[in-house]
């Protein structure tokens, strides 16, 4: 992709990623956040986090399925960091607006309430990913280790979805949509990894000079990169 369309698309991505925050800020100023503004803020930031994480995760399988969309990789860090931005806002909504910065209350909440435990776990899993999002970190860690570390996005999104379900009252099916989407993405990754491995093994079998195991391992790591 040439430079100018990329700049244009990045601008769009920024605007799209900032839209939920801008809406919240505007609605807060206008006092238009509904009967329970705190809950609206928590719900909006939480939902946006899961959506951005899902989009971030969808990029790799999309590139594999449609090689022409290879340039999507350039948006992955942006989307991932915005996911972390909303996750942090979500966590701070709890800390400030629900717990009122009461440390004792937060400790007992995290220990007692499984949805808070799960939400906190998801945020903690995202923290090292955001911290190592720079080119410098990739160089410092080495591509392989960096890739492996960033596989934490899988447990993070699973924790996030479970957290969403656990804080709903029984009978409310709001998290169903995002659950299906995440399940499809995770399944796609598994299927693609399996196909890759088969292809690699076939290639290895066809070429006696290559070590099939090593080949397939190398490929699966690249698949997550």
């Amino acid at each position: 992709m040439t430079r100018y369309p990329l700049i244009l698309l990045k601008t769009f991505a920024w605007i799209a990623c900032l839209a939920p925050f801008t809406w919240l800020a505007w609605a807060a100023v206008m006092n238009n956040l509904g009967p329970d503004p705190t809950a609206t803020i928590a719900f909006t930031t939480g939902r946006t986090t899961l959506r951005l994480l899902a989009i971030t995760l969808a990029i790799s399988p999309l590139r594999r399925l449609l090689p022409r969309l290879g340039w999507l990789i350039r948006f992955r860090r942006l989307l991932g960091l915005f996911a972390f931005f909303y996750a942090t806002l979500h966590m701070l909504t709890y800390v400030g607006l629900y717990a009122g910065f009461d440390v004792g209350l937060m400790i007992s909440d995290i220990a007692k309430r499984r949805y808070i435990t799960m939400g906190m776990a998801a945020w903690l899993l995202l923290l090292p990913l955001a911290a190592t999002s720079t080119q410098w970190s990739i160089r410092k860690l080495g591509g392989k280790r960096w890739s492996r570390l960033h596989m934490l996005i899988y447990p993070a999104i699973v924790c996030g979805v479970i957290h969403f379900w656990w804080q709903m009252k029984p009978g409310v099916l709001t998290p169903l949509g995002i659950t299906v989407i995440v399940a499809v993405i995770l399944l796609a990754r598994l299927v693609l990894a399996w196909a890759q491995r088969r292809k690699a093994l076939a290639a290895a079998a066809g070429d006696a000079r290559n070590d099939g195991r090593r080949q397939s391992k190398g490929n699966s790591i690249r698949a997550t990169g």
Partner: peptide, 22 residues
């Protein structure tokens, strides 16, 4: 006395700006 899903120490007053609810 806490319940499982929610602590009962605090409450959010409905219909107020977010910074005045707690």
């Amino acid at each position: 006395v806490d319940t499982v899903p929610w602590s009962q120490k605090n409450e959010r007053r409905i219909g107020l700006p977010f910074y005045e609810q707690l």
